[in-house]
Amino acid sequence: MGTLIYKIATRAQWAKAEADGVFAGAPIDLADGYIHFSTADQARETAAKHFAGQNDLLLVAVRAEALGAALRHDVSRGGALFPHLYAPLDLTHVAWVRPLPLGDDGAHIFPQMDA
């Protein structure tokens, strides 16, 4: 299947994407000019840092290879390379969408992050 990258989105954002057939991005993505993604190793820290305490979230897995040259890996948090998409996300490149609920401890409970 290839490499998956991950986007955390609200249910409302994703419902709009499904209605539009494309995900243009969350407000932070639109402001920055690209869609922020995380690798499997980065996703939990992203959730804790940017989505702490937020419920009603989804974890969207995207096939990185399908995104072509519009996907770049830019230096970001702590000098790590993060995947950024410099185009709207065509939903045909989505492998799956799964709930990202909060646990009793306030941390998000991640699903199995594979194909």
Rank of each mutant, 00 (worst) to 15 (best):
T92F: 01
R11N: 09
A52I: 02
F23A: 08
P101T: 05
A70Q: 11
L4W: 07
P101E: 14
A43T: 10
V97Y: 01
V22D: 08
D32K: 14
H84Y: 06
G25I: 09
F51I: 04
T39M: 09
L100E: 09
R11I: 11
I8H: 05
L91G: 03
P99G: 03
H84S: 14
A66E: 10
D20E: 15
M1E: 12
D20Q: 15
D105E: 00
G21D: 10
A9P: 03
A95E: 15
G68F: 02
A47Y: 06
Q54R: 15
L102M: 01
S38M: 01
T92C: 07
W96N: 06
T3Y: 07
Q54S: 13
A17E: 01
P83L: 09
A87H: 09
M113E: 02
I8W: 04
G33V: 08
L58P: 04
D90I: 04
P99D: 12
G106C: 03
L57H: 04
T92W: 02
W14Q: 09
V60F: 03
E65S: 13
A80K: 14
H36K: 12
L57F: 04
L100H: 01
W14S: 13
G21F: 10
L85D: 01
I28N: 05
L81P: 03
A17C: 10
I35E: 00
G106K: 04
E18H: 04
Y86Q: 05
A17H: 01
Y86F: 15
T46I: 10
H36S: 15
D114L: 10
P101L: 09
F23C: 08
I28T: 11
A12V: 11
G68L: 02
D114Q: 13
A115P: 05
S76A: 14
S38V: 11
F110I: 03
R63F: 05
L102G: 00
G68K: 00
G78S: 04
G33C: 10
D74H: 12
I35G: 05
Q13M: 11
V97P: 00
H36L: 09
R11S: 07
P27V: 06
P101K: 02
A17T: 02
L71R: 05
Y6A: 04
Q42F: 02
D32A: 15
G33S: 10
A17V: 03
A47E: 08
G33F: 08
G25Y: 02
F82Q: 13
A12E: 13
R11L: 07
M113R: 10
L71S: 08
V22W: 08
D105H: 00
K49I: 13
H36D: 03
A12G: 06
L59K: 05
A115D: 12
A61V: 05
L58D: 07
G21C: 06
V62F: 01
V22G: 02
G53D: 05
R98T: 12
G21I: 06
R44C: 05
K16A: 14
S76N: 12
Y86S: 04
G33Y: 10
D105M: 00
L102H: 00
E45T: 12
F110W: 15
R72Y: 10
R98Q: 15
A52V: 02
V97H: 02
T10F: 06
Q42M: 06
L91K: 05
T46L: 06
I109Y: 02
K16T: 14
